[in-house]
Nucleic acid binder design. Structure first.
Lengths: 257, 257
DNA sequence: GTGTCGATTTGACATGCGTCAAATCGCACA
DNA sequence: TGTGCGATTTGACGCATGTCAAATCGACAC
């Protein structure tokens, strides 16, 4: 759990003895006090505007692992921001195959498919106990009319989603299994950095099966390649705890030369 | 060339001798007179509103095959609608590989990547002589504030783009070469129908190389599978002229059971 | 602890698709 | 009509990754 991670780090540093290892964030904390800050909201909006956003955001109690936020076909009402934990979205193709479309970490927004025909094109499920903010779409639309920077930000989020999808398309269409897995590790690392956590040490929130599904591989191939990377001292991996040992090597495997 | 196709068909029927095979549409025709009609614009907007849209749309002269509308990295100014012909968009990955992200046929909108960071994430090039409408993004934004249905429509277009990308991700990650090719043929057929053309007879606007690139295959595999489909009497293919003979079979190959 | 069950790893083998090479086609242009 | 060259097809072969099977690990209940 990412939100717990810095608590755990503080304990290791043992300079803040009043902290404990349980997640004790008030899940109703306002946007202005949210440590994720501009990760999910536009940096440009003023304090007054943030209060307005605060008013439309719904903060539910944490979602347990395996629980769904919405299902494919559900009528579309809201978009969501991850506060803590991790979410995956997946869709069933016409032939009934499940395809994971994305993993979402704290500060990231999901659920923007579904705007097109008012029903969700994918399902969203918690990979671990997670907290999410729900932002009703009609309120967001109204507020956007008053806050141009919010509207722009929202457009940018959708557009970024498209750009991400297109990177994944390229990865699946053009890259080997080694390259796909290296790219995923680097993506998780970069997103960890974005949240001010370690670039080299983090926990994989998803199972090997999920990684395989997402990358268009089998679980056996994923396992073999992770073992190979470990043997080659590119990473260290114990269960889901990942440590990147040779970042340059990983980049070169991923094809970022 | 799709806009020429019905001219060509009329000539075959030889009941309209005054038509010729050259493209003689006035490329400056207004939105309200455009035969594509609600394919690209929201069906909900009134005539008055359409005039307003008309005023912001730029209609350039036709683009020759191989010419670019924009290049990856160009600053983002407009989105585009295909009037006639066909456009492909592609992007270069970090490792320099080209990935075709989509083919766009008359009535379809492209160029919506790039909103996120004000620069295009892909390049767009004409597959054949094509006419496109250019819609400046800032004018569109302003007009959207006055026309809620336009704003909604635009959101829907972006969201549909996401849904399309996710279908492609699933196709690339989970389906065999046979299935991918069958799915592409069916997609082109369905989009032909949307434009009131034949579901079974159409011209592939792209090369085998483009098909291979788009579907994450090699040109040899594409060629072999198209040959196989022909031998099995699922399709008839002469060069780029496609005729679907056994639609049900094609659907079952694509995995739509 | 001990048992149970799903998750992961590892190995042996099979195959779909890529690679390399050569033939053929089709269109532009002389 | 011929000539050239890129596009496409076809064949032979190899390899990356899938499939099947079995061993091992890890988390959780009791």
């Amino acid at each position: 759990m990412y939100e717990q991670q810095d608590d755990a780090m503080n304990i290791l540093a043992s300079d803040l003895p009043e902290k404990d290892t349980t997640c004790h964030h008030d899940h109703r904390v306002s946007c202005s006090n949210c440590r994720l800050g501009s990760l999910c909201l536009p940096i440009a909006v003023s304090s007054d505007d943030i209060d307005q956003i605060d008013n439309i955001v719904l903060r539910s109690r944490p979602i347990d692992k395996g629980n769904h936020l919405f299902n494919q076909g559900d009528s579309f009402k809201s978009i969501y921001a991850v506060r803590s934990g991790a979410i995956k979205t997946y869709s069933l193709s016409a032939s009934g195959k499940e395809q994971i479309n994305g993993f979402y970490l704290p500060g990231e927004i999901f659920g923007m498919d579904g705007i097109s025909d008012f029903s969700h094109a994918s399902s969203a499920v918690a990979l671990e106990r997670s907290a999410v903010c729900e932002i009703p779409y009609d309120s967001l639309g109204k507020l956007s009319n008053e806050l141009p920077s919010l509207q722009r930000h929202f457009m940018q989020l959708m557009s970024r989603e498209i750009a991400n999808d297109q990177k994944l398309i390229s990865l699946l269409g053009k890259n080997s299994a080694d390259e796909r897995i290296a790219a995923l590790i680097l993506s998780l690392s970069a997103r960890n950095v974005r949240r001010k956590f370690s670039a080299t040490d983090f926990r994989l929130p998803m199972s090997r099966t999920d990684i395989a599904n997402f990358l268009g591989l089998t679980i056996e191939t994923v396992s073999r390649i992770l073992s190979k990377f470990s043997k080659q001292n590119v990473i260290e991996l114990q269960n889901k705890e990942m440590r990147i040992i040779d970042m340059d090597r990983l980049r070169s495997i991923a094809g970022i030369d």
